[in-house]
Write a protein that binds this DNA or RNA. Sequence first.
DNA 1: CAAAAAGTATACTGGAGCAGTAAACAAATA
DNA 2: TATTTGTTTACTGCTCCAGTATACTTTTTG
Lengths: 134, 134
Amino acid sequence: MNINQATDYGFRAVLFLAQQSQSEVVEAQIIAQSQVVPMRFLLKIMPSLIKAGIVRSQRGIGGGYALARDPRDISLLDILEAIEGPIYLNRCLIDEDLCTKQGPPDCKVHLALADIQERLNNDFSGYSIADLMG
Amino acid sequence: MNINQATDYGFRAVLFLAQQSQSEVVEAQIIAQSQVVPMRFLLKIMPSLIKAGIVRSQRGIGGGYALARDPRDISLLDILEAIEGPIYLNRCLIDEDLCTKQGPPDCKVHLALADIQERLNNDFSGYSIADLMG
DNA sequence: CAAAAAGTATACTGGAGCAGTAAACAAATA
DNA sequence: TATTTGTTTACTGCTCCAGTATACTTTTTG
């Protein structure tokens, strides 16, 4: 029951970009060194953030990464989902056929887990990158 | 980001025991068949629930399992922790030395994750087995 | 006391995901 | 055109997951 390391690195990388002067691209190496993230590993994570529209990139000399939108519009859930996909507390919440009780309303466990999962999603989406910049 | 299958089976097994007549032991095979849990797998899970004081067992002919305490005093968190250990959203919440920022108050990511983790724990402990019996 | 019926403990297995590394590739700039 | 940057794909060692197998202990019953 945890986030994976890539997601943690993603949080820190995006927060770091948010703290740079607006729309200035920062080299991967600068991000990696300042956040103590293995450079190669960071490079593998960034494309997921780009596809999600959270970060933009620039290639070639003087290239790097910058935020693609306002830090107030980037939640921790956005980053988490970009990197490790949506939260599913239990496989029966992905595919109801996997529920031995054929899902709600009979399966009370299913209902409880669905509720907890929704709260968890709300908790992650309740934090924006801007909230962490103070 | 999910509970493991053993924990899900644990939820269902304990709920099933709670629905039996009080303090009557039920064979593992009955539990396994009714909850569609592989018998051998269930047998491996049960000792964790016993060590946590949630379930008691009886060996020999006519043996089986029964609840060890009131369903109102068994939360989903109790079962989850018995089977897969405590929830740690991130490794930096286990050992602050693993936080690249040496933990709070400097590391805002750390603080946010600690808050979300606490809410998640509360959400799981907010459901008792009795709540699921209705 | 012996046999059978339960649960207990330990170890194994195939598969998947995690964390990180490596190498070839593509684009942008000087 | 050479260099610098990011992109893509594949690989590796490791751990955990889900489930299975085997040998063992306890308890009851005949």
